[in-house]
Measured scan of single mutants.
Amino acid sequence: MSIQHFRVALIPFFAAFCLPVFAHPETLVKVKDAEDQLGARVGYIELDLNSGKILESFRPEERFPMMSTFKVLLCGAVLSRVDAGQEQLGRRIHYSQNDLVKYSPVTEKHLTDGMTVRELCSAAITMSDNTAANLLLTTIGGPKELTAFLHNMGDHVTRLDRWEPELNEAIPNDERDTTMPAAMATTLRKLLTGELLTLASRQQLIDWMEADKVAGPLLRSALPAGWFIADKSGAGERGSRGIIAALGPDGKPSRIVVIYTTGSQATMDERNRQIAEIGASLIKHW
C-alpha cells in the first residue's frame, strides 16, 4: 500500500456533525475584513475531517454560486457509477468541435482521439476544463441527475441546474447552481471519507484534487512546506470566486475548508488575494 493510499485508508468514516464552535475567531475577523475589502458577501466554513465538527463558520447557510467547484461533486457521481459497475474509467468518449465550450484547454486538443472518462475527470478537476465537465454531465444524465445524486447522499441544498458555462452566471437571489458552505463542506467530507465511494474511488478523487493546477493563487499560496492540500477552485460572473479544499500539516488532510464570495467589483487578483489571506490566517491560527 502506497503512502497516499495509507493516508486515505486511515481517515475515519464518522458522520458526526456538531454545532458551531468558534475556535479561532482571528480567522473570522479576516473573513469579515475580506467582505469589507471586496464589498461582497463571503461564506466560510472549516470542518474537522475526522469528526465533522464545525471549527469556524461565517454565513454557513447562505447560498453562493458553486461555479467550477461542482466538478468535484460531478466526478464523485461518476466514480459512484464506476463502483456500481455502470461506468468504466477507461471508456473512451468521442466528441466534436460543436461540443467545445469556452475554456476547454485539454479537450480542445483531443478532438481526433477523444478522451477516457478518467482523463475527462482529471481535466475537469485539475484544469477546470468546461467541455470535460459537460461531457461527464452527459454520462450521468445531466445537471438534474447530479442534484439527485447529492439528494441521495443527504445534501438537499446543493443543486446544479445548467451546463458550462451558463452555470457561472451568479445572478443575485437566483438559487440555480448554488450551494451553502455548510452543505458543500459536509458533502465533500462524505465523498472523501464516507462509505459512499470505495476506497479506490475516494483515493482517486483526492488524487485529482491534489493535482489541481489552477488554484495556485488561493490557499496554496499560503501553504507552508510539508502541508497537504487537495482543492478545487471556481470563478464566475459578478465577482464570484470560490474554493473547496481538504488540507492539513504533516502531509495529510485533517480539515475541510470552503470559501465562497460573490457580488464584488474587485479584480480577480484582488479576490484571489483576499482568499489567500484568509488561508494565511487559518494556517497561522491552526
Rank of each mutant, 00 (worst) to 15 (best):
M1I: 08
M1R: 00
I3S: 09
I3G: 04
H5A: 06
H5P: 06
F6G: 06
R7G: 11
V8S: 15
I11S: 04
I11T: 08
P12G: 09
P12S: 14
P12V: 09
F13L: 15
F14L: 07
A15S: 15
F17V: 11
L19P: 08
P20A: 06
V21S: 06
V21A: 15
V21D: 05
F22T: 06
A23V: 14
E26V: 09
L28G: 05
L28R: 07
V31G: 01
K32R: 13
D33A: 15
E35D: 04
D36A: 14
L38G: 08
R41S: 08
V42L: 11
G43R: 00
Y44R: 00
Y44E: 00
Y44G: 01
I45R: 02
E46D: 07
L47Q: 08
D48V: 03
D48E: 09
N50G: 15
G52S: 08
K53A: 15
K53N: 09
K53T: 14
K53S: 10
I54Y: 08
L55A: 07
L55V: 13
S57C: 09
S57D: 10
R59G: 03
P60R: 14
P60L: 09
E62A: 11
R63T: 11
F64W: 01
P65T: 03
P65L: 02
M66V: 12
M67S: 12
T69D: 01
T69G: 01
T69A: 01
V72S: 05
L73G: 06
A77V: 10
A77T: 10
A77S: 09
V78T: 06
V78L: 08
L79C: 04
L79T: 01
S80M: 14
S80R: 12
S80E: 13
S80W: 15
R81W: 05
V82S: 08
V82D: 04
V82I: 09
V82A: 09
V82M: 06
D83Y: 01
D83G: 04
D83A: 04
A84V: 14
A84G: 13
G85F: 06
G85V: 05
Q86L: 09
Q86K: 11
Q86N: 13
E87V: 09
Q88H: 14
Q88D: 14
L89G: 05
L89R: 03
L89Y: 06
G90S: 14
G90A: 13
R91S: 05
I93M: 02
I93K: 03
I93L: 10
H94S: 07
H94D: 09
Q97W: 13
Q97G: 15
D99V: 12
V101H: 07
V101I: 10
Y103G: 06
P105A: 05
T107S: 13
T107G: 04
T107A: 07
T112R: 15
M115L: 09
V117L: 15
V117G: 01
A123V: 08
A124S: 08
I125V: 13
T126L: 08
T126S: 14
N130D: 02
N130S: 04
T131N: 02
T131G: 10
N134Y: 02
N134V: 02
L135N: 02
L135G: 01
L135V: 11
L135A: 05
L136G: 01
L137S: 04
T138I: 08
G142A: 03
P143A: 07
K144Q: 12
K144V: 12
K144G: 14
E145P: 11
E145A: 15
A148D: 12
F149I: 06
N152H: 15
M153N: 13
R159C: 05
L160Q: 07
D161Y: 04
D161R: 01
W163R: 11
W163A: 11
W163C: 13
E164G: 00
P165R: 06
E166L: 14
E166K: 11
E166T: 10
N168F: 01
N168E: 03
N168D: 06
N168Q: 02
N168Y: 02
N168G: 11
A170V: 11
A170T: 10
A170L: 10
I171M: 15
P172Q: 12
P172S: 13
N173G: 10
D174F: 02
D174L: 02
D174T: 04
D174N: 05
E175S: 14
E175A: 14
E175Y: 13
D177H: 00
D177S: 01
D177L: 00
D177T: 00
T178S: 13
T178Y: 01
T178V: 04
T179G: 00
T179W: 00
T179I: 00
M180L: 13
P181M: 01
P181R: 03
P181E: 00
A182T: 13
A183G: 08
A185Q: 09
A185T: 11
T186D: 09
T186I: 11
T186L: 12
T186Y: 15
L188S: 05
L188M: 12
L188Q: 02
R189A: 15
R189H: 08
R189K: 13
K190N: 14
L191G: 01
L192S: 04
L192V: 07
T193L: 15
G194V: 09
L196V: 13
L196Q: 15
L196K: 15
L196G: 10
L197S: 04
L197M: 07
L197V: 04
T198P: 06
T198E: 08
T198I: 05
T198A: 09
A200F: 08
A200G: 13
A200C: 11
A200W: 06
S201V: 03
S201A: 11
S201R: 06
R202S: 11
Q203H: 09
W208E: 02
W208G: 01
W208C: 03
D212T: 05
D212Q: 10
K213Q: 14
V214G: 05
A215D: 01
G216V: 08
P217W: 05
P217L: 09
L218H: 02
L218W: 02
L218K: 01
L218C: 05
L218S: 02
L219P: 04
R220C: 02
S221A: 11
S221I: 12
S221R: 12
S221D: 09
S221T: 14
A222V: 13
A222S: 13
A222D: 09
A222L: 08
L223G: 03
L223Y: 02
P224T: 06
P224L: 03
P224S: 06
P224D: 07
A225R: 13
G226W: 05
G226D: 11
G226F: 07
W227C: 01
F228G: 05
K232T: 00
K232V: 00
S233Y: 00
G234S: 06
E237Q: 15
R238H: 13
R238E: 09
G239S: 04
G239E: 01
S240T: 07
S240N: 09
S240E: 08
S240L: 01
S240K: 01
R241S: 07
G242V: 01
I243C: 09
I243S: 01
I243A: 03
I244R: 00
I244C: 08
I244G: 01
A245I: 01
A246T: 14
A246P: 00
A246W: 05
L247C: 10
L247T: 07
L247V: 14
D250G: 13
D250T: 11
D250S: 09
D250A: 12
G251E: 11
G251L: 11
G251S: 11
G251A: 12
K252P: 10
P253T: 10
S254T: 15
S254H: 09
S254G: 12
R255H: 04
I256D: 00
I256N: 00
V257A: 06
I259L: 12
Y260D: 00
T261A: 12
T261S: 11
T262K: 14
G263W: 05
S264N: 05
T267S: 13
M268D: 07
M268C: 05
M268T: 07
M268K: 05
M268A: 08
D269V: 14
D269A: 12
R271G: 10
N272S: 07
E277R: 10
E277G: 10
G279V: 10
G279A: 11
A280G: 12
S281A: 13
L282G: 02
L282F: 08
I283L: 02
I283P: 01
K284L: 09
K284G: 12
H285G: 12
